[in-house]
Amino acid sequence: MSSRKKVLLKVIILGDSGVGKTSLMNQFVNKKFSNQYKATIGADFLTKEVIVDDRIVTMQIWDTAGQERFQSLGVAFYRGADCCVLVFDVTAPNTFKSLESWRDEFLIQASPRDPDNFPFVILGNKVDLDNRAVSAKRAQQWCQSKNDIPYFETSAKEAVNVELAFQTIARNALAQETEAELYNEFPDQIKLNANDNGRNRDGDNCAC
């Protein structure tokens, strides 16, 4: 296997509105945080290169673009995900309770080849706030009960654990990806872009 091949990992971030999905992405990729809450506008996906075990890996982290707000994420969003990050707000118990349904929703919509071993990572965000309402223990217990999903307590605002969490995400997604490659019998999907002439066969593009 050509392990020197460029690796692109698709990571999607799910969780209720306002738990800090966009902020976490932005902290990880751009090292920036804004206190101003607004429903996600303009955030699409962010890419960042990371190094995992001497391999350069490009993480493409997909935001929900606000379509989760009224439970309206379409199946296209989930296609081809290598890792799913579920986020809740440690000060808002409802967002913790939603994790279960987000996980189920992901498994139904993305229908990964091996649902039992698909890499999830759980982030309990906003640990910088005082009014914490979901204990670390409770969160950990839930994660353990779900096939030992890795759990991190993060603060996008103060950059607590964000780097570490995303390292784990990359590592687990990569393990999944390497496995998936073995099964990928049809590698040559076409992406469209402006100066692409595709697999331009010798001098054949002037019709016959």
């Binding site: 506008i41 699409d44 009224f70 439970q71 309206s72 379409g74 296209a76 969003f77 296609r79 999907q189």
Partner: peptide, 26 residues
């Protein structure tokens, strides 16, 4: 890939990325 039904969703995502509000089951 995955059929023609993907294409409307691609346009919807762009709409959402630029602030469009989405509400299925409505």
């Amino acid at each position: 890939m995955y059929g023609s039904g993907e294409l409307p969703q691609c346009f919807c995502r762009l709409c959402a990325v630029f602030g469009g509000v989405y509400c299925l089951n409505r």
